[in-house]
Amino acid sequence: MSAIGFHEGELSVQRKAGVSHDAARLEGMLRPALLEGGAKKFLAQREFAAITARDGAGRMWTTALTGQPGFLDAAGTTLTVHTAPGPGDPLHGLPAHQQVGLLVIELAIRRRVRINGELVRSASDELEIAAEQAYGNCPQYIHPHTITQPASSLPVVTDGALGEVETALIESADTFFLGTSHPTRGADTSHKGGEPGFVRIDGPDLWWPDFPGNNMFNSLGNIAVDPTTSLLFLDFATGTALHLSGTATLQWDAPGETGRAVRFHPTRAVLNSWG
């Protein structure tokens, strides 16, 4: 993932949305990453991140990583994460030498940084990422939450069907994390927020409106090229986590301010605790 600038999917969505000129002004944010200065300090103070990667079978998931301040250790273009997905997590034992997307977010102060790159080392208690992109996002749609440290529990794995617990978690959510990928640019993790109920369940599928943002369309651009998608919903009060893996499509005639929406079809689900 060494190319710089927007890829063909991002460019196509920008053109269709009529924002190519505005997006071009932000293309410099995609320059090669350097995790020093303010970025290094921000990372060192955080306690939460969400990572998108593929499991040993090649299925894509997004999951949470938590730790005390200092568990995200940056130096130059290397980010060492002093934790890893544990037993019962769909990304437990995730293979190294794959592209991953990491979103480091502080919900209380509404700040976030996206770091995309190669997972060069994966151990039972540590991950090492060679960062290729690192940039901040605006605080829009971030709802303040306190990170909990829930007790562990055995996962419940299904073929993607949503039961009562999963439905209640989705319908009450004001926050979720979205994982997407591009065949040559790798994985990406983004934050999505809205008023509770902004994610709708429609039969076996989920859909949500695409709100106005920075016009870069990193996630939608990935989906336009590769429908492989993963979602992570978290109950911040109980520590329940819902991981969904499946495919997504873009809709351009949806209700709402932008007329854009994403429809997601889950093919696999894992319900467990996070932290």
Rank of each mutant, 00 (worst) to 15 (best):
P204W: 07
H92V: 06
P144I: 05
T229Q: 10
P155Q: 00
E10R: 06
T229C: 12
H92G: 05
T175G: 04
Y135G: 03
G18F: 05
G93F: 00
T189W: 03
A123M: 12
L91M: 06
Q99G: 13
A248Y: 01
G101L: 12
R31V: 07
A131G: 09
I201W: 04
S122C: 08
E128Q: 15
H7R: 13
A131K: 14
L127M: 06
N215Q: 08
Q45V: 00
P227G: 09
L103A: 05
G101E: 13
A131H: 13
R15P: 00
F198V: 02
K192T: 13
H145R: 15
G203W: 12
P90S: 10
A50W: 02
E36S: 11
N218R: 05
A57L: 14
G179L: 12
A50K: 01
H97R: 15
P227L: 08
I105S: 12
P204N: 07
G136P: 05
I51F: 03
R200A: 15
A75G: 07
R59P: 03
L26Q: 14
T258E: 03
M60G: 02
A248R: 12
G203F: 15
I223S: 04
G256L: 00
G86M: 02
L79H: 08
A134R: 02
H97Y: 10
T238V: 02
G70P: 06
G193Q: 04
H143S: 10
G193C: 02
P69L: 01
G58N: 13
G179P: 05
G9Q: 09
F264C: 06
T238R: 05
G179H: 09
D159S: 09
T267M: 13
P266Y: 04
E36Y: 00
T63V: 15
N137D: 06
E126Y: 01
I105H: 10
N214M: 07
F198C: 03
R111C: 10
S12L: 08
A74N: 02
F176P: 00
T80V: 14
T52F: 02
S12C: 09
R15L: 13
R31H: 07
T229R: 10
H7L: 11
T80Q: 13
T267A: 14
E36V: 04
R111K: 15
F42V: 04
E126I: 02
P144D: 03
E166I: 04
D55Q: 06
R114T: 01
P85S: 08
Q99P: 06
A224R: 09
T175K: 08
L232I: 06
K192V: 13
G239W: 01
L11K: 14
S20F: 11
L72V: 12
A84P: 13
A39R: 09
I129P: 11
I129W: 06
L34S: 11
V165D: 13
S2C: 04
S20N: 05
G239M: 07
G197S: 07
R46N: 15
A248T: 12
A64N: 08
Q251I: 07
L43F: 06
R15V: 09
R112W: 10
E128I: 15
L30G: 04
G101S: 14
L102N: 08
F177Q: 10
P87A: 09
W274P: 00
E118F: 01
A237F: 10
M216F: 09
S12I: 11
V104G: 06
V100W: 05
